[in-house]
């Protein structure tokens, strides 16, 4: 039998879509990483506050309703990291001066519209929570309006934290939903991407808190991180399986990611995915944190959280780049 071929010659001139989609570079993956981590920090600190105040559970009690030092630091870092992430988002716009257009409308079908509003909704309560858990330092400064704000909300930290836990989950999921609604891009078009980015964000946030926490608080964050990594491994497995068992568009895109020889910074996607993200970013830190919990003392306790953070960053770059280098929905 003779081989049949299809040859397509096109006069299309458009560097944004040829030879493949090329619209988002480093800004967007970096924002997704920072946004996910900010959401994760808000989730963890809020839950820690609620656990302490309602159930008396927590690494230590510093007497003012804040469970521990890591929560004080994490509460501040959460809005700061989101702010930095939003700066990258802003820099990615082709016409940054029109950024106001996001905030003069609500487009109910557009995830990016919902996202732009939730990014704004994040700040007031997250900043308030950061102020309340650090109120003893703010009191020393004795600024009139800050004092009044603290007096007024002092007794309401628990409901603030409860709302914040939900906003944190919303931000974490949104960073994945942003990509997963594009049915034209087969790799991104997976409803579990939101879950993957949420869990990865929580894991990165726990790793960051583990890095910054004083020694007596570290076991708590090591445990949170190890649990998040477990869940993330399951979700990554579902993401991969959902892709390769899907129709031609999905399975091709997933193979492009997990077995592709397309390169990012000199290494193939396959090596980035299995070697760096799964092995170094998930399995090795999980093992290290398991050993630590089992009482085997590790010489360099920073290794596990740093690997987790690198893994989280690599995941965002891989998904954004591999989603663009695979062909459009056919």
């Amino acid at each position: 039998m003779t081989e049949t071929t299809t040859e397509i010659i096109s006069t299309k001139l458009n560097p944004n879509v040829l030879p493949h989609l090329h619209i988002w570079e480093w800004h967007i993956p970096l924002y997704l990483f920072l946004g996910g981590m900010a959401g994760g920090l808000l989730v963890i600190t809020s839950i820690m506050i609620v656990l302490k105040r309602r159930f008396g559970i927590g690494p230590r009690d510093e007497g003012d309703g804040c469970p521990c030092l890591a929560v004080r630091i994490g509460s501040i870092l959460s809005p700061v990291l989101l702010g930095v992430g939003m700066l990258f988002l802003f820099l990615d716009l082709a016409h940054p001066l029109y950024v106001w257009a996001f905030y003069t409308t609500i487009q109910p079908t557009s995830p990016m519209s919902a996202g732009s509003w939730i990014l704004i909704a994040f700040f007031p309560l997250a900043v308030l929570q950061a102020m309340l858990v650090n109120k003893k330092f703010l009191r020393e400064r004795n600024i009139g309006i800050v004092n009044k704000l603290i007096d007024w909300t002092e007794d309401h930290l628990t409901p603030v934290a409860l709302v914040n836990a939900h906003i944190g989950v919303g931000i974490g999921i949104y960073t994945g939903i942003l990509l997963s609604f594009f049915s034209a891009r087969p790799l991104w078009s997976s409803s579990i991407l939101g879950m993957l980015f949420l869990v990865s964000g929580i894991s990165s946030a726990a790793a960051l808190m583990l890095l910054l926490a004083p020694d007596d608080e570290k076991p708590t964050y090591s445990m949170i991180d190890a649990n998040a990594i477990w869940i993330e491994l399951v979700v990554v497995g579902l993401f991969v399986l959902g892709g390769i068992t899907g129709p031609a568009n999905s399975s091709g895109a997933m193979m492009h990611l997990i077995a592709g020889d397309y390169q990012m910074a000199g290494l193939s996607y396959m090596i980035w995915f299995w070697g760096i993200f799964v092995a170094l970013g998930l399995l090795v830190p999980l093992l290290l944190e398991f050993l630590e919990a089992a009482g085997v003392h590790i010489k360099f306790p920073q290794v596990a959280p740093v690997l987790v953070l690198i893994g989280g960053l690599v995941l965002r770059f891989l998904i954004v780049f591999a989603g663009q280098t695979y062909h459009t929905f056919m």
Partner: peptide, 18 residues
């Protein structure tokens, strides 16, 4: 238009450019 490029990612026909 802010140039967020979501529409470029959404179009199955790759008909748009910045």
């Amino acid at each position: 238009c802010t140039g967020c490029k979501a529409c470029l990612a959404a179009c199955p026909y790759d008909a748009r450019y910045v």
